[in-house]
Design a protein around this nucleic acid. Structure first.
Length: 326
DNA sequence: AACCGTATCAACCGCCTACTG
DNA sequence: TCAGTAGGCGGTTGATACGGT
C-alpha cells in the first residue's frame, strides 16, 4: 500500500534542515500572504527557500499560520482532548479540528508530555482509558497489602481488622455490596482468609481506638508504608476516602451516559498518586457539581487538574448506593 | 559556575490515502 | 485498472530550556 519512499535527488539532499530562521519564516509568510501556498512542492523554489515543500507546509501549518492559538491549554481544552481521545484514539488531526487554533502536532505533544503522564499516574491506561491491569499498576496495591501484613505481624491493626472483618459478615452493608459487584478481587472473602483468625466483635465492643479514629481525613499521597486508613470504613459517608472505584466500560461518545453500578470496579486501594481533594458529597449526602482533582505536578507547584464529570460518575453512584444501604 | 537529568516542543521521517492521468 | 504524485498523518528525534545539586 502506498508509494515507496523516493530517494532524495541531489538537489533535495542539499536542502536545508533543522530549525527555521526568522528570515526564512518571513520569506514563507510573505509568499503565502501574497500568493497562497498553492503546490507545496513548488513553493520553496518560488519563495526562494532552500527547503523541501513538506518542511514549508509543516512550518506554516504548525507555527506560522495566523490563526494559531499560543499558550497553555485551558481546562476546557484538556477535557475536550481527553474526551475525544477516549473516542478517537491518536487521531490528532481529527481532534485538532475540534480545538480551534490548536494544531495536531501541538495536541500530540501535549498529550505525550502532560496528559498521558497524568493518566498513568492515576492508574488509567492512556490507550484504553480504563484502569490499568498490568503488573506495574498493581504495585501500589501489592505494597499496601505488604504493609497490612507487616502491621498484622506487629499486631498494630489487629483490632481495626476485627472491625473490618465485621463489615464482611453477612447482611452488613459492605458484604451486600461485595455480592452485588462482580470484580472486587481484594475484598473477596477468599482473599481475606488471614482475617478469619480474629473473632468478630459485637457492635458495642468497638475499641476506644476505633471510635477515636479520625474520620474524613484523606491524604492518599502519604507514603504507602504509612498507616492505611481502613477504619475510614466506619461510616458510609467516608467510604469514598479509602479507595476508589472506576467504571469498567470504555467512555462513550455520550458524556452523560451513566454506567450502572454493576459495571463498577471497587478498588480498595487509592491510586498511586491521587491528591484527592474533591468532595463529591457534602454533609447531607447531596452531590455537588464539579469534580476537581488536584495533582502535585513533578514540574513545580501543585497544579489543579479538572477531569470530566463522566470520570467520576461511577464513584458517585457507588457513594449513593452506599448511602442508600446505610 | 559547572554539570547533569528531565521536560518540552519544533521538526523530521516514513508510511498511508486520495487524487489524477 | 494501475502507477505516479502530493498532501496528510502519527511516531519519533534531537536541540534547547529549565531545575536541582
Amino acid at each position: 500500500m502506498g508509494r515507496s519512499p523516493v530517494p532524495p535527488s541531489s538537489n533535495e539532499s542539499n536542502l536545508k534542515k533543522g530549525a527555521w530562521t526568522t528570515e526564512e519564516d518571513q520569506q514563507l509568510i510573505n509568499y503565502i500572504q501574497n500568493h497562497g501556498h498553492g503546490s507545496w512542492r513548488s513553493l520553496p523554489k518560488l519563495a526562494g527557500l532552500n527547503r523541501c515543500g513538506k518542511s514549508c507546509r509543516l512550518r506554516w501549518t504548525n507555527y506560522l499560520r495566523p490563526d494559531i492559538k499560543r499558550g497553555k491549554f485551558s481546562q476546557e481544552e484538556e477535557n475536550m482532548i481527553l474526551h475525544l481521545h477516549s473516542i478517537l484514539g491518536n487521531k490528532w488531526s481529527t481532534i485538532a479540528t475540534r480545538l480551534p487554533g490548536r494544531t495536531d502536532n501541538e495536541i500530540k505533544n501535549y498529550w505525550n508530555t502532560h496528559m498521558k503522564k497524568k493518566l498513568l499516574q492515576s492508574g488509567i491506561d492512556p490507550k484504553t482509558h480504563q484502569p490499568r491491569t498490568d503488573l506495574f499498576s498493581c504495585i501500589p496495591q501489592l505494597l499496601v497489602l505488604a504493609n497490612i501484613k507487616e502491621l498484622l505481624e506487629h499486631n498494630q491493626l489487629a483490632q481495626n481488622l476485627q472491625y473490618f472483618n465485621h463489615f464482611l459478615q453477612p447482611n452488613t452493608g459492605l458484604s451486600t455490596l461485595v455480592n452485588r459487584t462482580s470484580s472486587i478481587p481484594l475484598f473477596q472473602e477468599e482473599n481475606l482468609n488471614f482475617l478469619s483468625e480474629f473473632p468478630v466483635l459485637e457492635d458495642d465492643q468497638e475499641s476506644e481506638e476505633i471510635r477515636q479514629f479520625p474520620v474524613g481525613t484523606s491524604n492518599v499521597t502519604q507514603p504507602l508504608h504509612q498507616e492505611v486508613s481502613i477504619m475510614n470504613l466506619e461510616t458510609s459517608n467516608d467510604f469514598k476516602h479509602v479507595g476508589h472505584c472506576q467504571g469498567q466500560s470504555a467512555f462513550t461518545s455520550d458524556v452523560n451516559s451513566s454506567p450502572s453500578i454493576s459495571a463498577v470496579t471497587w478498588n480498595p486501594i487509592p491510586p498511586l498518586i491521587d491528591n484527592t481533594t474533591t468532595t463529591t458529597t457534602n454533609n447531607s449526602g447531596s452531590h455537588e457539581s464539579g469534580s476537581t482533582i488536584s495533582y502535585s505536578g513533578g514540574d513545580g507547584g501543585a497544579s489543579s487538574y479538572n477531569w470530566p464529570e463522566f470520570l467520576f460518575e461511577d464513584s458517585f453512584k457507588l457513594d449513593q448506593a452506599l448511602l442508600e444501604m446505610s
